[in-house]
Design a binder for these strands. Structure first.
Lengths: 244, 244
DNA sequence: AGTGCCGTAAGGTCAGACCATTGACTGTTA
DNA sequence: TAACAGTCAATGGTCTGACCTTACGGCACT
């Protein structure tokens, strides 16, 4: 990335690896991951071990590990038999990154909701086509939970989010799941007002969730799209007028 | 997030902030960014300064900075008047994260392309509706550039990506632009084969780009959707059979 | 068989030092 | 006066070596 847009002549005197040592280590490990020498679940050597292998100090190794950890490639456990473990599939990090990006740029809540509408409605054809019986059962189970929560007066956006994420999983496309997950993750949580109004809207929202689940069970794409469209539109309205 | 799904009783003995100090610092700074106390372009205090303010050692501060850097929130410059500068939101990091996940075979190229299809086609209604004259001129300009590159035999995926990103901007929704940008960033670049085949496909791709631009000029949504659909489908085909 | 203690391996943090890079300041020279 | 070169200070990059904290596993005791 940083190397793009060079002038001419730059190939004559190639850059003398002036980059950070820790970054070089990160890159090396990334390569190992890419080409399959390291697979999820594997454990990297201990910090003190890596120091010797790379011939650098522990501080440097640790910085490299911090970066890998922040990227979501490894998780680190302390204690005996701890260490850096290649993470099993975790879409959370990149979703979080997306949310960070969204939340710190000049986005209005309206824009986010509009994007959400496109993705969630666009995913419906796949969902209607691919949802398995298990998927549908799970959806109805979440609806019941939501209903129960409403009755108890304990409805939160978290419950709604779980439904939407589970719904996304019905498309059986990890990339899509990830996108929708990041919409419903830290991002929505940061819209405080939306969370506080949740109890009020819970009843109607749950009803719509049920309609959605039924439409999917009936493989009725049109109905699903209609309900989802209204559902999100209402969210949009709720959210937009306070986080302007 | 980590606090969800607790058992009962947990509120009696609250967790004694056993987390990493560096992580706490990261969170603090993230908060400052979120609530607008720090805006892009600002410079954080120097490492030695931060040590004193937080009352920790320099190593710890540096680890926090590594994380913030990896997350793409700051860039770091050395030398006098260097330091950590808040970056303007850039989608590259997210795209890189996507690419990492893809390379760990958490995601297949096919899934990503499917998601891309949904977003890019879903954005078309907005694009057709909102594209201004400037937008359309810019699109045609990019098409011309592409045509020129094809004639010279210098067509690269980069040119195609620029078109798609500019197209996304026509929707005048920053969130959408960012999503599509992260698809066309380091992610596509990492599909080496796709890059190498680019020259061959360039001619046809450019033709389709032109058709797209024309459809948008004519506010012909159906045509735009048809062309885009074919366009991405072909990419999907090209990409899927080697990165299985 | 169960319980609790303790050792050990691993990450987390600290303090202080030195090097490398860079931009600004200053002084010299044509 | 303008251009160049040298110096200096600020700042990130790395190293060393020490100590603390956590957690797993085994051992001794009950």
């Amino acid at each position: 990335m940083a190397a793009t847009g060079r002038g001419e002549k730059d190939d004559l005197f190639s850059r003398v690896s002036t980059s950070r040592v820790s970054q070089v280590i990160v890159d090396q490990i990334k390569v190992l991951i890419r080409d399959g020498s390291l697979t999820p679940g594997d454990r990297l050597p201990s910090e003190r071990d890596l120091c010797q292998r790379f011939g650098v100090s522990r501080v440097t190794v640790r910085e490299a590990l911090r970066v890998l950890e922040a990227t979501g490639l490894v998780t680190i456990k302390v204690g005996a038999h701890g260490g850096a473990f290649l993470t099993a599939p975790s879409t959370d990090r990149v979703g979080e990154g997306l949310a960070d990006l969204l939340s710190m740029s000049v986005l209005t809540a309206g824009e986010v909701t509009e994007a959400r509408k496109i993705v969630e409605i666009g995913a419906l054809p796949l969902i209607v086509e691919r949802a398995t019986k298990d998927d549908i059962d799970a959806l109805f189970k979440l609806v019941e939970e939501g209903q129960h929560a409403v009755d108890e007066g304990e409805y939160t956006v978290d419950i709604s989010a779980r439904f939407h994420i589970r719904l996304a999983e019905c498309a059986h496309n990890t990339a899509l799941t990830m996108l929708i997950q990041s919409f419903h993750g830290p991002l929505l949580m940061s819209l405080r007002e939306a969370r506080e109004q949740a109890p009020i809207m819970g009843k109607r929202g749950t009803g719509e969730h049920r309609e959605l689940a039924e439409a999917i069970r009936n493989r009725d794409l049109a109905a699903a799209q209609r309900v989802m469209s209204e559902h999100i539109a209402r969210t949009a309205q709720r959210v937009s007028h306070e986080v302007e």
